[in-house]
Simulated scan of single mutants.
Amino acid sequence: MKLLTTAFAAIAAIITAGAALADDYPNRPITWVVPFSPGGITDSGARTVAKVLGERLGQPVVIENKPGAGGIVGAEYVANAKPDGYTFLYASNGAVVTYPFLYKKLTFDPKTAFIPVHGMSSSPMLVVVRADAPYKTFDEMVAYAKKNPEKINYFTVGQGSAQHLLGELIQKEAGIKLTQIPYKGSAPALTDLLAGTIDMMLDYQSVMAPHIEAGKLRALGVSSDKRLAGMPEVKTLAEQGYPGAVFTAWSTIVLPAGTPQPIVDKLADAFAKTFADPEMIKYFADRGSNMMPGLAKEKLAAFFEDERVKTKAIIERAGIQPE
């Protein structure tokens, strides 16, 4: 009986300590690790959200860019960070779902290294080339690629990234061979696309729209199952005869494993309120992104599991082999 009483007392002490931590959290600036280079859509989106989130929490949320290996460098950093709520990760498809299927050796297991906090947004990708490219439509690009195998090169942020998976699906669906060129983020890739160093980008409306509107780039298709509201003239790849090339990239927030639950709850609640802010709703809508309201904690964990099943099927269909 005495042992049981002691055990209950210990549990109560842990719960009380966790609650006390949450009451005092945050009492200093928080670091939001973005695993891609500055200047891209990920970075600019995080900075916009960080401003509103910081106001909600009463402390600055500081963006720290840690690019490299398609997001693995930043994910490793957060996986090994102190689990106190002061470091969290901008986690996209690759870091929390895809990479275990593509790399035989990772220094972290996404299933155990992170605690799901809240979903951010999901977005399809545009297939974009320069306006002076020798192909004016997606079918013309496919015809060119068939005559010139591997000559068309395209941007990704690394093996297993959203761009890479969509690129593999396009190659499989169209029966063509492209060449993947990895970058640390979309900003340097866009510079190279405009300069003619690379031939094609698979990226988001918010990144590409200004250059398409300026007549510098041309959109050949979009990877969604329906046309974008902001660019209704751009046909989906599915309606152009490539139904297997439907793919949506997404972004979420995760904390290091071991973070006290009261802190997880408080941060998830702050993100929920941030994403309900009219300024945030407009920001994402203007960029062709769909928000993920209510997708937090246990529901986000279930979403990850569903995505793992879907991603494994995509990788197998595309014939990608783990490295």
Rank of each mutant, 00 (worst) to 15 (best):
V128M: 02
D203F: 02
L228E: 00
V33C: 05
T87N: 07
D24L: 07
P256F: 11
E140H: 05
A13D: 11
T5S: 14
L255K: 09
V157H: 06
L126G: 00
H118N: 13
V254R: 02
A7Y: 13
D24H: 07
I41L: 09
V52H: 11
I30Q: 02
P260W: 02
D277Q: 04
Q159Y: 15
G175V: 13
Q171M: 15
W250P: 03
A69I: 02
G54S: 14
A268P: 05
I30K: 00
G119S: 12
L3K: 15
K2H: 14
G85W: 06
D84K: 12
K266Q: 10
V97G: 07
D43C: 00
A238R: 03
F36W: 02
H164N: 09
V117A: 07
Y135Q: 11
Y204M: 10
A245D: 01
S92P: 06
G258L: 12
I181D: 05
L295T: 03
G85F: 02
P83Y: 05
M201H: 07
Y90R: 01
G221N: 00
R47L: 11
L228F: 05
T191R: 13
N148D: 11
V128H: 04
I181N: 05
W32M: 09
G258W: 12
P116N: 06
A95R: 01
K184G: 14
K104Q: 14
V309E: 10
P256V: 10
F303P: 04
D265I: 01
A46C: 14
L21S: 06
G94Q: 09
G94A: 14
M208I: 11
Y154K: 04
P293E: 10
A276W: 04
L126W: 00
T252G: 12
T31D: 15
P182Y: 10
S206T: 13
I198D: 02
A302N: 08
A75F: 05
K177S: 14
F8W: 12
K226H: 12
G241E: 04
E239M: 06
R28M: 04
P110A: 08
Q180V: 14
F8P: 00
P83A: 13
A313V: 10
G71I: 00
A12D: 07
E233M: 06
A46N: 15
G119C: 09
D109E: 13
L237K: 05
P243L: 09
T98S: 14
K235Y: 02
G241D: 07
I115P: 00
G94T: 08
S223I: 01
L4G: 10
P149C: 09
K136W: 08
Y154I: 08
K147W: 04
P256L: 10
A296F: 09
F114R: 04
P232W: 08
P110K: 03
F247G: 03
V49G: 04
A272E: 13
S223P: 04
Q261A: 15
K310N: 12
F36E: 00
